[in-house]
Simulated assay, not measured.
Amino acid sequence: MAEITDEDRERVKLLQQITASKNEFKKLSLEQLQRLQELVEKKDYSHDKKAHKSKMKLLGKINVRIYELTEGRGIWG
């Protein structure tokens, strides 16, 4: 069995935080979002098609939120 790294723990902690509530995702700072993006991108889910699809969907949401924070507004307003 593969060893659990500190990065794995950090990724899981951030993922648990955003899955606890829809509002938690918007509470993450820009730095936390960028770190989560980095950690999720590193993780290889190619062996599981459904997990890989979820990863890509999450990365899309993270990118949108980072854009909102850096532009200082939401996309539609």
Rank of each mutant, 00 (worst) to 15 (best):
E3I: 15
E3N: 15
I4M: 12
I4G: 09
T5I: 04
D6A: 12
E7I: 03
D8R: 07
D8F: 02
D8A: 07
R9F: 13
E10W: 04
E10C: 11
E10V: 11
R11V: 07
K13E: 04
L14D: 00
Q16T: 04
Q17R: 11
I18L: 07
T19P: 04
A20F: 02
S21F: 06
S21P: 02
S21M: 03
S21T: 06
K22A: 00
N23I: 03
N23T: 03
E24R: 12
E24M: 05
E24K: 13
F25N: 06
F25Q: 01
K26N: 01
K26L: 07
K27M: 08
L30T: 12
L30E: 01
E31S: 13
E31P: 09
E31W: 02
Q32P: 04
Q32V: 11
Q32T: 06
Q32C: 12
R35D: 10
R35E: 10
L36P: 05
Q37H: 12
Q37F: 04
Q37G: 04
L39H: 01
V40W: 01
K42Q: 07
K42V: 03
K43E: 10
D44G: 09
D44W: 07
Y45I: 11
Y45Q: 12
Y45G: 05
S46C: 06
S46E: 06
H47K: 13
H52I: 07
K53M: 15
K55Y: 10
M56V: 05
M56H: 12
M56S: 07
K57A: 14
K57M: 14
K57F: 14
L58P: 14
L59I: 05
L59A: 06
L59D: 02
L59V: 09
G60D: 08
I62Q: 10
I62E: 11
I62G: 14
N63G: 15
V64I: 15
V64E: 15
R65E: 12
R65P: 01
I66Q: 11
I66H: 09
Y67N: 15
E68N: 15
L69T: 01
T70P: 02
T70S: 03
T70R: 08
E71L: 12
E71I: 10
G72Y: 00
G72S: 03
R73K: 11
R73Y: 02
R73C: 10
G74N: 14
W76C: 02
G77L: 13
G77R: 08
